[in-house]
């Protein structure tokens, strides 16, 4: 059996088992009847020319339909309620950026620490992963946690969990991504809160990018001349001021409303004309090909923290 190593795993197991028992009973009834009929009414026992003329029975058909409809609706609602829990990360989650590449996982912590194929998280602490891919579609899958989410290039998807069991839990890639697909393996390492603090102290906040993403984002913000058009206060320049905008809704040209989340900021950098805020000219150039994925991530972290 699979260990239940997250707060979400139990929900899955309960619903899975319920559907399993319902299926087993239905299967036994149908196949039991079929086998019984095949033996009881076998041609050696029944004259082929004296079978009764039965053409159907509406009440039975309707009862079967309605009965099954009720059961599948229960399964549907149950699945939906549990699924909602998978979507909503608690607000105190530890946020970690995930970049999937052919064929490994890169995890970047808020302070800039970067790990490959190893995700160290504290026990009983909600963790939210903000994931994107630098090449093809991958899928982040931890069987022991019963969570899975496709990781798509060009956009962000998220996934959260709270680990409830110390130790190591496999990370697999579930979406076929080429030659190394079955070797794109990682490990979630769940440690005590104290150990986690210890680990943070002993593991340097890493040279790979060499920068804390927030500071790097700040540098980029002036390097790439973002500050020409966007103030980091609420002041309007050519474009909107960016202070405190993250996560808030805004009205667009045309009247639609949109939440300014990671995907919105990324899209605004890559395809600035796609969603223009009401009252502003569509003046921003695209940064497609100018900014790397890491740089976009850093800018997002910077904008997120303007508050």
């Amino acid at each position: 059996m699979l260990p239940q190593a997250s707060t979400l795993a139990k929900n899955f197991d309960i619903l899975f088992n319920n559907i399993f028992w319902f299926s087993l009973i239905s299967f036994a009834l149908v196949i039991g009847a079929m086998i019984y009929f095949a033996i009881r009414y076998h041609r050696t026992r029944r004259d082929p020319f004296k079978t009764p003329y039965i053409t159907g029975h509406h009440l039975m058909e309707i009862s079967v339909s309605v009965g099954l409809l009720i059961v599948v609706m229960v399964i549907f609602v149950w699945g939906w309620v549990d699924y909602k829990k998978l979507l909503k990360a608690p607000s105190d989650s530890l946020e970690i950026q995930v970049l999937a590449k052919q064929w490994f996982w890169e995890f970047q912590y808020p302070e800039g620490r970067k790990l490959t194929n190893e995700l160290v998280v504290p026990l009983n602490q909600p963790v939210k992963l903000i994931m994107t891919s630098s090449d093809v579609i991958h899928s982040f899958f931890v069987p022991n946690f019963r969570v899975k989410q496709d990781v798509v290039p060009g956009q962000y998807t998220t996934l959260w969990f709270t680990a409830t069991q110390l130790g190591e839990h496999s990370i697999l890639c579930a979406e076929f991504c080429g030659t190394g697909h079955s070797k794109m393996l990682g490990m979630v390492k769940v440690v005590n809160a104290e150990e986690f603090q210890q680990w943070k102290k002993t593991t340097p906040s890493i040279p790979a990018v060499s920068k804390n993403p927030q500071e790097w984002g700040k540098e980029l913000f002036s390097q790439k001349m973002c500050n020409t058009c966007h103030a980091i206060t609420t002041q309007k320049l050519v474009g909107p001021g960016l202070f405190g905008i993250f996560g808030k809704e805004v009205e667009l040209e045309g009247g639609k409303k949109v939440a300014r989340d990671e995907n919105y900021i990324r899209e605004s950098l890559m395809q600035p004309q796609a969603k223009v805020v009401k009252g502003f000219p569509p003046a921003m150039p695209t940064f497609q090909g100018t900014l790397t994925d890491e740089e976009v991530n850093a800018l997002i972290v910077y904008i997120k923290n303007l508050k």
Partner: peptide
């Protein structure tokens, strides 16, 4: 009838959203 009933019933697992999250692509 025997095999398709199993095929159909296991479809219920996959149609239930939260259950599919774990079973998808396995």
């Amino acid at each position: 009838i025997f095999l398709f009933t199993i095929g159909g019933l296991t479809g219920l697992f996959l149609a239930a959203l939260s259950v599919d999250v774990h079973l998808h692509d396995t």
